[in-house]
Design a protein around this nucleic acid. Structure first.
Lengths: 253, 253
DNA sequence: ACTCTAGGTAAGTCTATACAACCCCATCAA
DNA sequence: TTGATGGGGTTGTATAGACTTACCTAGAGT
């Protein structure tokens, strides 16, 4: 067990390709720790070796270990309590609140496999409520798409979008098996303004079926409107099973 | 000009209200620097005294000065270049997204009349899950409070909080009929860091009763953790009926 | 059951010292 | 004019050691 990988060499020859100069000791210590956390060897909430134990294991001074651990705490990787020890912190929630991201990136960031299915792709005429959301008059033409996003074959999101034809005239001709609506719209133009509203809803029967839910489970619903040049170009309704998803965010004040 | 304010005293009396214990040396050095930047004495882009000059001026070791400057660089206050020096950084604008507000202000801003009721106020010992949220070990003592907030006699929020006794030793002695937990905690110290996670849940029977719901309506649940000095001081679980509340925000990009 | 206290443990801080890495600039030679 | 060299100043890293502060546990006493 006491192999040479347990102790950092005093001098690093380091034919490392990713870093031209050899990483400093405290960075090596950080790497040593994050590697074990990422591999699951040190699980969430478990206690890390004490500073003095790491000093013995790695053959560096306590100040060096201390700096590595202090920086890891600043990054939210571990938490520390004087007189108690150092612990693996709980990983951050997967979706940033009010941030504009592609769910495919979200899923892949969490280690899952993403797949999507197009349920509907059509042109509709807006009723009063929908027209109001677009600051238009009832009867205006809008494109309408419905997709399901899966994480490892489990439905994670119903994505329903209404898109202004003036903004994306070729929306219906896209192959959303390869390009996702989010990326397509973003590529035409990043929005100048975004509005998010989050609801809790009990899904309708058809939504339950699409999400493959057993019963009327509570769902998160994120309604997003985006503006370009002062005009609403998209309204999206994203529905997630409450048991499979959450929004979160962490920031310094 | 060479008054005693140029040298940090060995022991600080520090009648500071936000921190009962005297600030550590490196924090005093940070304060010394930020004060001069804030006052405009050291303008944007100007060069700070070198580490060795600060050592002479302030009477602390270079490692202490170095730590202060390194942390200020991490906070974006200064920039540093090896072999060159330390400079005042350009202040970066920051966008508030999901802000920290008191629900009483929320209700009154909407024209409603706010009222609250204390349901529970006690000391508990944390189980595994709760201890993890506080980055502590199971069995640690925590204060626990449950309040209901009403808007015109309609329940709008269940407010459940767990508070670290070390942060707010007198939490249980407060009269939350007049001072709300949010305000009390904020007055002790505004958090340095905040985490929000939003869930959709189906409420338990007791929660349904507290919210005076007719059936198992989907609810929004906002879980907030706040940090002070890198340590979790509060975990709040706020439950809203889905039909009566939503979270939202709009911003320019 | 509860409170108090003492001891052990672990992180937090501070110092003095040393060396390394880097930048700038003055000097000097081709 | 150009290029090389080297010195001085500045930040970056690393160490050993000492002391401080906070937390927890176990045991004694109530």
């Amino acid at each position: 067990m006491a192999s040479d990988t347990d102790t950092l060499p005093r001098r690093t020859v380091s034919p490392d390709l990713t870093a031209s100069r050899p990483a400093s000791r405290y960075e090596q210590v950080k790497h040593y720790i994050t590697e074990r956390i990422a591999s699951g060897e040190w699980g969430v909430g478990s206690r890390l070796p004490s500073e003095n134990e790491l000093v013995e294991t790695l053959g560096v001074s306590r100040m060096t270990v201390h700096r590595a651990l202090r920086e890891l705490m600043g990054e939210g990787i571990v938490t520390r309590a004087q007189g108690v020890g150092t612990f693996v912190a709980r990983p951050a929630p997967r979706a940033e609140v009010l941030e504009l991201r592609d769910i495919a990136d979200d899923i892949q960031a969490g280690g899952g496999r993403h797949r999507s299915r197009v349920v509907l792709l059509e042109t509709i005429r807006a009723d009063g409520h929908l027209a109001l959301a677009f600051d238009q008059r009832p009867g205006v033409k809008l494109f309408h798409s419905v997709l399901i996003h899966y994480e490892d074959d489990t439905p994670l999101q119903i994505e329903e979008r209404f898109v202004s034809p003036h903004f994306a005239p070729d929306y219906l001709d896209q192959d959303f098996a390869t390009t996702h609506p989010h990326r397509y719209l973003f590529q035409i133009s990043p929005p100048h303004e975004v509005e998010h509203v989050i609801f809790a809803v009990t899904p309708e029967a058809d939504q339950q079926a699409l999400l493959e839910l057993d019963g009327p489970e509570a769902c998160l619903q994120l309604v997003r409107r985006t503006w370009v040049d002062g005009r609403v170009v998209m309204r999206g309704v994203f529905t997630y099973p409450g048991s499979r998803y959450s929004f979160g965010g962490r920031r310094q004040t």
